[in-house]
Design a protein around this nucleic acid. Structure first.
Lengths: 342, 342
DNA sequence: CTGAAAGCGCTAACAA
DNA sequence: TTGTTAGCGCTTTCAG
């Protein structure tokens, strides 16, 4: 077995309390006992065992992260932000994915809680109706949502204003002369963000006297196989929208590929606008227009806010503050002005 | 404080041992005590505290993962694979990134070890000369490398055959008639894989009597700013290579963007071949040619191999087995046949 | 400045 | 089948 403070104490000829003190508040131990102990630590290759400390302190200096998937760059970047900030604040990160299965959210959080993480950062399918979050609330476990932006409930979150961001994106298309704009989205039931973005789309359309079209909801996996079935209506130039607003960049990029497969050109035949602003969008040709959210920052801010709550001296009501980060409409060649065909 | 088995025992009128038994081997407790205890667990909202179990058992049912960054999809996918497999085998995942700083590898692993992870999965800058791995070896801590493919040392790893994969990619270009093929790589000192790939490139060139050109080593960050300085030589049609072999897809995609900025067309003026086979490469236009490695599988296999070692009944020499997964050359429009300009 | 001792939650002998 | 008990590594009173 690996050495514990006990062996170190023995080796140094001091008590375990002294070793512990040296580790935690080095000032409280005399200069020469310190060096004695340090020598022993060195000699034994001692490494403190956090398990013991955690058990004793009732906390783990670890936060849990639960996101749908890492296949979407957005969540990978967010996790990256969380991890970087965590490292700075001396926290570790335990990570889990749900693969967009709402029923897995609960188990994921339960596991994290069994590990006694000090708090959790998560993205759920529906932040306003989540039994998982109910548990967290009930048990007063510090948590903070990322990407989710609860409407009915006062749950702490870090996100962009999804509705406003989508609104801005659609307005941009409208200003370019588009009138037939359709939305392409993942399954709404798996993403409340997508639904909020759809509301932003609707609002923009209505405010400009335009008809909101039925959104195209594509199942997961679509991006894997080249299935252009969902774009069949696009064959007819009179039928198809002149612009497609996609609820995320992955979808937008897939759509662009599928449109090409159909023989349609972007942006000449159809303009495409995404959401997320993933870095690779800039490397496309044409560059993907998108409304960008600062994913890494979202993760970073979430971690900082979470730690703030965790280390709150009073355990009274956690401030549960929500944060809206700014989005930016990023212009690329995937969108162009629309000139009426008549 | 949250309820412990002690409160549960009290509530159910049994001993803590009985509660523990119900939790671990439910068969060893009578049917009606079981229900009594279960009722108590329910009533108290009891959740086992792994910290206690971990301390007692001397293991954590947790593995650590250390990769350079999550900004490169490849590592995100790998982590995804690790996490999925871990969940299936009842392990949790603690994650850290080094941001390609070799000097951070050590601290990352130390932190993980302080948490007493049962093993670690990692990608290091140089697997053959890593003091971090020396520590792991010396202390007999189960670990397994991903992407790294040690040459001098017999360290366990899961990867593709980097040299052979690069060789295949370059052969492909040669077969298409290219003779001036140059390699574009990240900093070799930060990635032994890149260097191995360069060796594959050299071998392919030499075997075909072609001159291996000096590789272009681009610093990190290049992809962020549009800095085409490293491609200045490409201005001269007689000077520039007809094909670019990039040590990873991110680099390839950036290069394509930068070539466009220079007014060069891919593949008409320059063919571009990547390495990794990231999913988004398929969504590009033209599709990125690349030699694909199965990243998610790499993560999954690594986790399984690691758990196998961890749960090894004998703690004798860990089998330390390395695994080479198959790569595949994926053809896309970013590469075309080369017809001599004369 | 240092030591003795209790106890965090849990599992696993060992006894009954 | 169940209970008693020791102890995993650590921090933290409380005494000295």
């Amino acid at each position: 077995m690996r050495p514990s403070i006990k062996q170190v104490a023995l080796e140094a000829g001091v008590s375990i309390a002294t070793v512990s003190r040296l580790l935690n508040k080095p000032d409280s131990v005399s200069i020469d006992t310190a060096s004695k102990v340090n020598r022993a630590i060195e000699a034994l290759g001692f490494r403190p065992n956090f398990t013991g400390r955690n058990l004793r302190e009732g906390r783990s200096h670890t936060v849990g992260v639960v996101v749908p998937t890492l296949s979407n760059t957005v969540f990978a970047q967010c996790l990256q932000g969380v991890e970087i900030a965590a490292r700075q604040l001396d926290y570790s990160v335990m990570f889990t994915a749900t693969e967009y299965r709402q029923q897995d959210e609960f188990a994921a959080v339960e596991l994290l809680l069994a590990h006694r993480v000090d708090g959790v950062i998560l993205t759920v399918a529906d932040a306003d109706a989540s039994s998982t979050l109910d548990v967290l609330d009930r048990e007063r476990i510090p948590y903070i949502l990322v990407y989710n932006q609860p409407q009915q409930t006062a749950r702490p979150s870090v996100s962009v204003d999804n509705r406003a961001a989508a609104y801005d994106a659609v307005i941009h298309l409208i200003k370019l002369g588009h009138t037939r704009i359709q939305m392409l989205a993942g399954q709404f039931h798996a993403s409340d963000r997508a639904l909020q973005r759809f509301h932003g789309y609707q609002q923009a359309m209505h405010e400009h006297g335009l008809q909101a079209l039925t959104p195209i909801e594509v199942p997961r996996h679509t991006s894997a196989a080249l299935s252009v079935a969902y774009l069949q209506t696009f064959r007819d130039p009179l039928q198809r929208p002149s612009a497609l607003f996609c609820s995320n960049d992955l979808l937008a990029l897939s759509a662009m590929r599928d449109l090409r497969a159909l023989g349609l050109r972007v942006p000449d035949d159809v303009s495409v606008m995404g959401f997320d602003g993933i870095p690779l969008g800039d490397l496309m040709d044409p560059m993907l227009s998108s409304v960008a959210q600062p994913s890494e920052q979202i993760g970073e801010q979430a971690l900082r806010a979470l730690v703030r709550v965790i280390e709150e001296p009073q355990d009274g009501r956690a401030p549960a503050t929500s944060q809206i980060l700014p989005h930016t409409v990023r212009l690329g060649g995937s969108v162009r002005t629309f000139h009426s065909r008549s």
